[in-house]
């Protein structure tokens, strides 16, 4: 399939990109890595009024340490997350998860901003950002605003961004010391049947604090297993704690039945995958 005709603009700055978006009344699409957009264009499933290429916006491609915070520009490529020493040191969960995205070619082009805006319920970056409690900076005609990742998704492939807003940056607070990630795929680095990411602090008293457990692929957006998190506060992550947390997570899910797996199977796997991640955390604290 070949794309239908489209108008193409290459923006040279954020302001110019915003102007183009305004010109097309929100009917244009931004082109970043293009890993989801281009197939949709070629299949003629999307027919934007125009494409606004933001790849020349080098100010959006930066990884910066701002005190304790780490800021990622929307155009930071997956391959950068995979190889940057700064990311390895400051956002190791993302550095781990990014290797589960597609293949080398996809990771060379794909961007974290594109992945967040695409909003696939099974994809890695939205889940990683959720578990790390990221904040998203969006710029529109009325100026900039910060959106908490917990408020970013309205559903599958649907975000809180307005049609004339541009995601420019993702900000992360200091990364918890312990983290774990597991996912099940039908083939290597395919879209996840389900995925689990977890982070936490282990204190000298032998208890775990501030645990965050996120689940991908089992709802219309990545979700936190909040009941499980509450249950585990201060616990030692004993086998019994872990089993109880796995069961408690079932309240947070509403899994789909699709070609990758039935809802029933996904629900069966959720406690098992949570257990895998929590056992990893326990092990990480021991090591």
């Amino acid at each position: 399939m070949k794309a239908a005709d489209f108008i193409y603009h290459r923006a040279t700055g954020v302001a110019e990109a915003l102007r183009y978006m305004e010109d097309y009344d929100g009917e244009a699409r931004l082109l970043a890595g293009g890993q989801s957009l281009m197939p949709m264009l070629n299949m003629r499933l999307w027919r934007p009024a125009a494409l606004i290429d933001i790849n020349a916006l080098s100010e959006l491609a930066e990884v910066t340490a701002q005190g304790e915070e780490t800021h990622l520009g929307a155009l930071v490529r997956h391959a950068t997350l995979e190889t940057s020493p700064l990311i390895a040191a400051r956002l190791p969960l993302l550095a781990t998860m990014v290797r589960f995205i597609g293949d080398h070619q996809i990771r060379r082009r794909g961007t974290i901003g594109g992945s967040l805006v695409q909003g696939d319920p099974a994809s890695e970056m939205p889940l990683g950002c959720l578990v790390l409690g990221a904040e998203i900076n969006a710029v529109g005609p009325a100026g900039a605003r910060m959106i908490a990742i917990e408020d970013f998704y309205d559903g599958a492939y649907a975000t809180a961004l307005e049609a004339d807003e541009l995601l420019t940056e993702i900000r992360f607070a200091v990364h918890p010391p312990h983290f774990a990630f597991h996912e099940l795929c039908r083939r290597h680095n395919d879209f996840a049947v389900l995925s689990v990411a977890a982070t936490g602090h282990f204190s000298a008293d032998g208890g775990w604090h501030g645990l965050r457990i996120g689940l991908g692929g089992v709802n219309d957006r990545p979700v936190l297993a909040e009941a499980s998190m509450a249950l585990l506060e201060g616990s030692s992550l004993s086998d019994a704690d872990i089993a109880a947390a796995g069961e408690a997570a079932l309240g947070a899910i509403d899994p789909p039945s699709d070609i990758r797996g039935s809802a029933e199977y996904r629900a069966h796997l959720v406690p098992r995958y949570i257990a895998k991640a929590l056992r990893d955390l326990r092990l990480s604290a021991q090591g």
Binding site: D103, R187, H188, F191, I259
Partner: peptide, 25 residues
């Protein structure tokens, strides 16, 4: 290659949903 019995449509009709193994598999 799965056909939906109700619609008669091929539902695994792209590389996205047809799980051909990759070299890594």
């Amino acid at each position: 290659l799965i056909y939906d019995p109700d619609t008669g449509q091929l539902v695994s009709g792209s590389m996205l949903d047809y799980f051909m193994p990759t070299a890594a598999d």
